[in-house]
Simulated scan of single mutants.
Amino acid sequence: MSEMRLHDTQGNRLYLNAEERAAFLAVARRQPARDRTLCETLHWTGCRPSELLEITPARIDLSGGTIAIRSLKKRQDAAGRQKTVFRTVPVPPEFLDTLNTAHGIREAQKSRRKATAPIWDLSRVRIWQIVKRIMIDASIPDAPHRSPKGLRHGFGVHATVQGVPLHMLQRWLGHAQLSTTAIYADAVGKEEQGIASRMWGKC
Rank of each mutant, 00 (worst) to 15 (best):
P118G: 09
H103A: 01
T180L: 01
H167Q: 10
P118V: 12
K83D: 07
K110Y: 06
Q162A: 15
E19H: 12
D142I: 12
L151M: 14
W120Y: 05
I55W: 08
K149F: 08
S123M: 02
S2V: 13
R112G: 00
S71Y: 02
S50E: 13
S71A: 13
Y184V: 02
E19M: 12
H145F: 08
D97R: 13
H103R: 01
F95A: 03
A117N: 05
E3I: 12
D121A: 15
H43Q: 11
S179L: 00
L151D: 03
L42E: 06
Q177W: 06
M1Y: 11
E107P: 00
E94M: 09
V125R: 12
T66D: 03
R48H: 08
F95T: 01
L53R: 07
Q76E: 11
A68T: 14
P144C: 09
D142M: 07
A115E: 00
L38R: 08
H7I: 05
A159S: 15
H158N: 12
A176G: 14
L16C: 07
L6G: 08
S111C: 11
L151C: 11
S197T: 12
T160A: 11
I183N: 03
N100K: 01
A187G: 07
R36P: 01
T9M: 07
L96C: 07
R112K: 14
R106Y: 01
R34N: 09
S111N: 15
A187H: 10
H103F: 14
R21K: 14
V157D: 03
R113I: 09
R124P: 04
E3V: 12
F86Y: 15
L6P: 03
A159L: 14
D97L: 13
D8G: 05
L151A: 09
Y15P: 00
R87T: 13
H7G: 00
T98K: 03
A78H: 10
L25I: 13
W44D: 11
A143V: 12
T101A: 14
T88A: 14
S139R: 15
M199T: 15
F86G: 00
V188E: 15
H153M: 12
P92W: 03
L178W: 02
D35S: 10
L62V: 10
M1G: 15
L166V: 15
T45I: 04
E54P: 00
D121F: 05
A78S: 13
K132T: 14
H153W: 08
A33I: 03
R36L: 08
Y184W: 02
A23Q: 08
K149L: 10
A138T: 09
Q193D: 15
S63Q: 12
C203P: 04
E40T: 00
L62P: 06
L53M: 03
D97C: 05
W172M: 15
P90K: 06
G150P: 07
T160G: 01
L25Y: 03
R106T: 07
T66V: 11
I105V: 11
N17H: 13
G150V: 09
G156N: 03
A138E: 11
R106D: 02
I119Y: 05
E20G: 05
D8V: 02
P93R: 08
K83P: 05
